[in-house]
Simulated assay, not measured.
Amino acid sequence: MKKTLALCSLGLVMALPATAADYEFDKAHTNVQFGISHNGLSNFLGQFQDFTGKFDIDEKDLTKSSFDVIIKTASVDTDVPALDDHLKNADFFDVNKYPEMRFKSERIVQISADKYAVEGQLTMLDKTLPVTLDTRLNFQGRHPLADFFPAYDTQYLGFSATASIRRTEFGMMTYAPMLADQVNITLEAELKRKQ
């Protein structure tokens, strides 16, 4: 009897429609940027060119989703080669010792119809601290260009996210406070469901 009940339960679970799916970055349409006040003269901008992400997206309830993003610190790019070299050394990202930054989500809270707070842990320079991404859902569904370009014929999710961190809390002390402590992070991302 127990075996029959177990088989029936298994059959019921397998019959339920799956709402979670694996997504990945559409890297050609995703930007990971940062901005910092440069001695009060301007807000200096940069980005990271090499990043990956594993996204477990619950397509019926995004608050049940989770993700894990890894950024290669040596891919920092400010369009100023000499500055990039400086950012890679021990004064800042120390890329030889700490080749990766990582953000892992822990909880997603829906604030309004298209706004979410994504709470997680950011690891940088071997220190892990809580960070919340203020996130706006821009799009969810079959890509609008799917009928024109077969490569787009899958489910997509697009969002914009921002957060602020204090770099000194992660141990990045160089030139503080002359070079601002607060770093503003901007993520413009398109995700696609894995085929």
Rank of each mutant, 00 (worst) to 15 (best):
L133M: 09
V32S: 03
T132M: 11
K192F: 06
Q47Y: 03
Q182V: 15
P177C: 03
D153R: 11
F139A: 05
L87S: 03
S75Q: 02
Y152I: 01
F170Y: 15
F67T: 04
L83Y: 12
V13G: 02
E106I: 08
G46Y: 05
A82I: 11
G141F: 03
T63F: 05
V109P: 13
L129I: 10
T168R: 12
V80L: 15
R102Q: 14
P130H: 05
S9T: 07
L45Y: 06
G53T: 09
S9R: 06
K192I: 13
K127I: 13
K72V: 11
Y23S: 00
K64M: 01
F25P: 04
R107I: 08
A176H: 06
A146I: 11
A163Y: 06
D85T: 15
T174P: 00
D68G: 00
Y116S: 08
T123E: 13
T154Y: 00
A20M: 07
A151G: 03
K54D: 14
D22I: 07
Q47K: 11
D134I: 13
L191N: 05
G35C: 05
Y98Q: 11
P99A: 10
T73A: 09
V95R: 11
V183F: 08
L12T: 10
F159M: 07
N184F: 02
V109L: 14
S112Y: 12
T128H: 12
R102E: 14
V109E: 15
E59A: 07
G141T: 02
D58S: 03
A21M: 08
L187K: 08
E169S: 02
L83P: 05
F103A: 04
N31F: 06
D147C: 00
T132Y: 07
D85C: 04
A82S: 13
Q182S: 12
G141D: 01
F148Q: 13
D56P: 06
K3V: 13
D77E: 11
P130V: 10
T135C: 00
K54Q: 15
G141M: 05
S75W: 08
F44I: 06
R193K: 15
Q110E: 14
N184Y: 09
L133I: 01
K194V: 15
K127W: 08
Y175K: 10
Q140N: 03
L7I: 14
L87K: 09
L41D: 06
Q155W: 05
Q110K: 15
F103P: 04
P144E: 01
G53C: 07
T132P: 03
G141R: 00
D126F: 07
Y175C: 07
F148P: 07
